[in-house]
């Protein structure tokens, strides 16, 4: 397990429904990330297809592994880095069952996937219309550390990041398609989830406009202290890199001992009160 890794967050302007174009864009940015010394490059939510695919969703979804994952595996292998990106995944068993999924690839191929747990269905968001929520929250033991994956609206639910941390994640990755009107929320959440869990957090957000919805970019890498290690520009394509030193975790865990001070008895109460809401 390395002590230090270099992370790139790549905020790209995807074209809705144009997988080949978006794969080419990810290839270009993966190469750029490698040139900057990255061990891992993180792309936004649904970066393979664009976010607001609406009824195109059913025909754009693929199995995992599948043709697009195969193409991007070659990129990860060629550039000798890990990659996280987002895609529409359909179930092996039912073609109409679709997930909003984050995929983790390594230089040796497919590592794992995470299906979004919290599907926003309010305001301009209509994810429950199209997606089935995931039921698992894995932590992946990799050559670049123990990684937990989350997707966008998951950030609003602190228990998700908390569980990843309790399962041993050192780095939480959040891929996102957050519109500009929600920028302030995510600027707070990304720092809060890192601080409250004493964990590193890499956040990659879309840029560009889909159906009048503008995504704000602002991708970032956050230290467990809340310090912003690297931050991409607002509103335009950008790629930034930052170094994460896992040995910092011990120091921070001591200074802000939230894990030491966890009180499991409240979690039972939380469950009861959530059921009674």
């Amino acid at each position: 397990m390395p002590r230090r890794i270099n992370i790139a967050v790549a905020q790209i302007n995807c074209r809705v429904g144009h997988k080949k174009r978006n794969i080419d864009l990810m290839k270009k940015h993966a190469k750029q990330a490698k040139e900057k010394g990255a061990d891992l490059v993180v792309f936004p939510e649904l970066s393979l297809t664009g976010y607001l695919t609406r009824d195109l969703t059913y025909n754009l979804a693929e199995k995992i592994p599948g043709p697009s994952v195969d193409s991007l595996e070659q990129v990860a292998e060629k550039e000798n880095l890990h990659m996280v990106f987002g895609m529409l995944e359909h179930s092996d068993k039912a073609r109409g069952v679709i997930y909003n999924t984050a995929v983790l690839l390594g230089p040796k191929g497919f590592v794992g996937k995470y299906r979004k747990l919290q599907l926003p269905t309010h305001s301009v968001f209509e994810e429950k219309r199209y997606f089935r929520p995931g039921y698992q929250l894995p932590v992946f033991e990799t050559d670049i550390g123990r990684l937990g994956l989350t997707i966008c609206y998951d950030m609003f639910f602190p228990e998700i990041s908390r569980l990843l941390r309790l399962k041993g994640a050192q780095l939480i990755i959040c891929i996102s398609a957050s519109p500009a009107v929600r920028r302030k929320f995510f600027e707070v959440f990304t720092a809060a989830r890192a601080i409250e869990n004493t964990v590193f957090l890499a956040y990659a957000n879309l840029v560009g406009i889909e159906d009048g919805l503008q995504f704000w970019g602002g991708s970032r890498i956050v230290a467990p202290s809340g310090h912003i290690i690297a931050q991409a520009k607002y509103d335009e394509e950008d790629l930034v890199t930052g170094e994460v030193d896992y040995s910092d975790l011990k120091r921070i865990e001591t200074f802000v001992p939230t894990l030491r001070d966890l009180r499991p008895e409240f979690f039972d109460s939380l469950k009861t009160h959530t059921e009674d809401l």
């Binding site: 809705v16 429904g17 144009h18 664009g50 607001l52 695919t53 609406r54 009824d55 209509e126 159906d211």
Partner: peptide
Amino acid sequence: YRTVGADFRIPYTTQ
């Protein structure tokens, strides 16, 4: 089955 103005939900995109 699917109706214009009701449950056709097509994004603005170039083909």
